[in-house]
């Protein structure tokens, strides 16, 4: 299980990295944390001819609140989020999820933006990005665009990112104190990829009624998905145990589950029902 050969580039600036991508995009691959890429290469399921290692570019590991959003640079590692990076529901949600991402020695290397670029369907960050409506700033030599999370995930390990582009920043809304965020996932062994996860965010108005609701599911389909009907079912009323249970049931029926030898479709639905309800209940219990 040794990686296939590649040429190695270690640019010192973002401009240099973009120039390398422009020249080698099709056969090149950005190396940030590498915690998903390298195992894939070790199994020889990926064989990029060139790796463009951005770890030596200064100033990319930022994570700061700015203009009502949390701006996350391409080298902000998972471990950074283990404690809330910002006060309020967004920082707490990220911290809640971070401890489920693999293990400490992976979290010191793996990056938030790398997870979004890799787009594993069971990635916690991808699920949160979709739930909260992340914006993804993408650069290429001489160009820039902003892609909303809803348009980012295309299929398993496939995103809107073009071969010559770099995911230069992810930003998340810094939700106000009227938001309640929940997170629940199920895996068989600590730190493993989840068989199912739910990220929920409810905004409660002054009367305690649900004014906005977002529910995203991860690990259950080719990409993270929004459980829109389930979220909509909660609008306009105070959440009750029954309404949360009903929303979870809607979420469990409202998608086409991926199946494999260990996880049949109906079991995946069982897990979505349980995780959705637990995420919702957990968000309101706090």
């Amino acid at each position: 299980m040794k990686c296939p050969p590649f040429d190695y580039h270690a640019p010192r600036s973002q401009a240099e990295a973009l120039a390398l991508l422009a020249r080698h995009g099709e056969e090149g691959k950005i190396l940030a944390g590498g915690q998903s890429l390298v195992p894939t290469m070790a199994f020889r399921l990926a064989r990029p001819a060139r790796l463009i290692d951005i770890n030596r570019i200064a100033g990319l590991d930022y994570c700061r609140a700015e203009g009502g959003r949390l701006r996350i640079g391409p080298l902000a590692r998972h471990a950074r989020f283990e404690r809330p990076v910002a006060p309020g529901p967004t920082g707490r949600l990220l911290a809640r999820a971070a401890e489920h991402i693999a293990h400490a020695p992976i979290r010191t290397r793996g990056t938030f933006c790398g997870s979004l670029a890799h787009a594993d369907p069971a990635s916690e960050w991808c699920c949160i990005a979709l739930a909260l409506g992340a914006d993804l700033r993408v650069l290429r030599e001489g160009g820039e665009r902003l892609v909303p999370a809803a348009g980012w995930f295309q299929s398993v390990f496939t995103t809107a990112l073009a071969p010559d582009e770099l995911l230069a920043e992810a930003s998340l809304p810094l939700l106000g104190p009227d938001w309640r965020c929940g997170f629940a996932e199920f895996n068989r062994r600590a730190g493993d990829f989840a068989l199912a996860m739910a990220v929920t965010a409810l905004r409660l108005d002054a009367a305690g009624h649900v004014a906005e609701a977002r529910i995203a599911l991860g690990g259950v389909a080719g990409t993270p998905i929004l459980a829109e009907a389930a979220a909509a079912s909660l609008l306009g009323a105070s959440p009750t145990p029954d309404s949360l249970r009903a929303a979870a049931a809607i979420a469990a029926e409202g998608f086409e589950p991926t199946e494999d030898a260990q996880v049949p479709a109906d079991y995946r639905r069982d897990l979505v029902r349980a995780m959705t309800r637990r995420a919702l209940e957990g968000s309101l219990a706090a």
């Binding site: 199994f43 068989r188 062994r189 600590a190 730190g191 493993d192 990829f193 494999d260 030898a261 260990q262």
Partner: peptide, 28 residues
Amino acid sequence: LLEEVLYAPDGNPLTGSLADYLPPSAAE
């Protein structure tokens, strides 16, 4: 509870990594 070697009906092994074949950790 955890460990099982699985094969597809054509005899292809489905548990060729430690992400699929699950020895327990200290948490389990």
